Amino acid sequence: MQEVRKLLCDEQWEKLSPLLPGKPSDPGATAQDNRLFLKAVLWIMRTGSPWRDLPAELGNWHTTYTRFKRWGESGVWQRVCEIVSGDRDLKMLMIDSTVVRAHQHAAGAKKKEGPQAIGRSRGGWTSKIHVVVDPLGSPVRWLLTGGEVADITQATQAKSLLEGLKADAVLADKGYDADALIDSIQVAGATAVIPPRRNRVVQRSYDRHLYKERNLVERFFNRIKQFRRIATRYEKLVRNYLSFLNLVCTYIWIT
């Protein structure tokens, strides 16, 4: 259990504890074991283990899973992440996506239970995490789709990754080279730092030096995939997988 303790040090707990349900000031019963509960969820997320394999010293697996699911349904994980990520630097934004292979246990959810966002791509059944990060490599906004969904669609459609975000520059790879996206970035007063595709009749110029900073979004993906429950998708429903994703983004912001 030493590794679990390292995942949630006193300083991190002090930042999170006032934001969680079950405080004495909240209506209803208090939750004195919130810290143990978070350790249990972090252990599951780090190791990728089934809920039933949760060590007894971290609590009852079924009780822990039930609370994890309930907090996801009520928006707790998302709300906490939005609070800790409030102090964001939006001068420069990097946008990209990463593919996550879906485990066989992720299949089979009934449609009435909610969306799954699992699709067939070159790697088989996969999901795709689309994300925007700031100049420090911290997550600003993220979406989950099936693995077959093109990156550009999540940057140009309504309620896109970039909607409402004001920046001086937006960095992306050539997969985002589309006139509609570049025009919308420029209309918003930002510079599009996106390499042109080779098949463009007229090649655009872009800031090659600034483009090197795009590595921050790749480093973000490497970081979240250290958590095996993120690197491989086991959850059947979007809601549960996004709960883990919200938690890992929260963890990055407070680390």
Results as ranks from 00 to 15, higher is better:
195 P>M: 01
89 D>F: 09
125 W>T: 11
167 A>C: 12
113 E>V: 14
106 A>P: 11
190 A>N: 06
209 H>Q: 10
215 N>M: 08
210 L>A: 15
150 A>P: 10
166 K>R: 15
196 P>M: 04
185 I>N: 02
173 D>T: 10
185 I>T: 03
206 Y>A: 01
213 E>G: 05
141 R>P: 13
91 K>R: 14
214 R>T: 09
138 S>Q: 11
143 L>K: 06
169 A>S: 10
93 L>R: 04
132 V>D: 02
192 A>F: 02
130 H>E: 05
86 G>Q: 15
110 K>Q: 14
168 D>Q: 09
202 V>E: 04
162 L>G: 04
129 I>T: 04
130 H>P: 00
191 T>G: 01
114 G>M: 05
98 T>H: 03
155 A>W: 02
134 D>N: 10
142 W>F: 15
165 L>Q: 06
122 R>E: 10
175 G>K: 04
103 H>L: 14
209 H>I: 14
134 D>T: 14
168 D>E: 15
110 K>E: 12
155 A>D: 00
129 I>C: 04
205 S>G: 10
174 K>S: 07
132 V>P: 03
172 A>D: 07
176 Y>I: 11
169 A>M: 05
152 I>K: 02
154 Q>G: 06
92 M>Y: 11
207 D>I: 13
159 K>D: 14
153 T>C: 12
132 V>Q: 02
162 L>M: 14
144 L>E: 11
202 V>I: 07
129 I>F: 03
194 I>P: 00
83 I>E: 02
186 Q>A: 13
170 V>A: 05
139 P>Q: 03
173 D>H: 00
189 G>V: 13
108 G>W: 11
170 V>E: 00
94 M>D: 11
126 T>C: 14
125 W>E: 12
94 M>E: 03
170 V>P: 05
199 N>A: 13
194 I>Y: 01
179 D>Y: 12
159 K>R: 07
183 D>G: 15
134 D>E: 08
212 K>W: 09
156 T>F: 03
158 A>G: 15
213 E>A: 11
172 A>Y: 08
186 Q>F: 13
82 E>V: 10
101 R>F: 12
142 W>L: 12
193 V>N: 00
153 T>K: 04
108 G>Y: 08
195 P>Y: 01
145 T>F: 01
112 K>N: 14
176 Y>A: 06
183 D>P: 07
122 R>S: 14
141 R>S: 06
172 A>T: 11
174 K>G: 08
185 I>P: 00
175 G>F: 08
113 E>I: 09
87 D>S: 15
113 E>F: 08
164 G>F: 07
141 R>T: 12
192 A>P: 07
142 W>C: 12
132 V>C: 04
207 D>Y: 00
200 R>F: 08
110 K>P: 07
135 P>D: 08
126 T>P: 04
192 A>W: 03
147 G>Y: 03
130 H>Q: 05
108 G>D: 06
191 T>Q: 01
136 L>W: 08
140 V>P: 00
176 Y>S: 03
85 S>M: 12
204 R>I: 12
202 V>A: 08
127 S>W: 02
91 K>H: 13
119 G>H: 03
92 M>L: 13
212 K>L: 13
98 T>C: 01
123 G>V: 10
178 A>M: 11
90 L>Y: 05
193 V>P: 02
87 D>P: 07
122 R>P: 08
141 R>F: 08
169 A>N: 09
184 S>G: 14
152 I>G: 00
128 K>N: 10
89 D>H: 13
198 R>T: 10
102 A>N: 03
112 K>T: 07
164 G>W: 02
85 S>Y: 15
208 R>N: 15
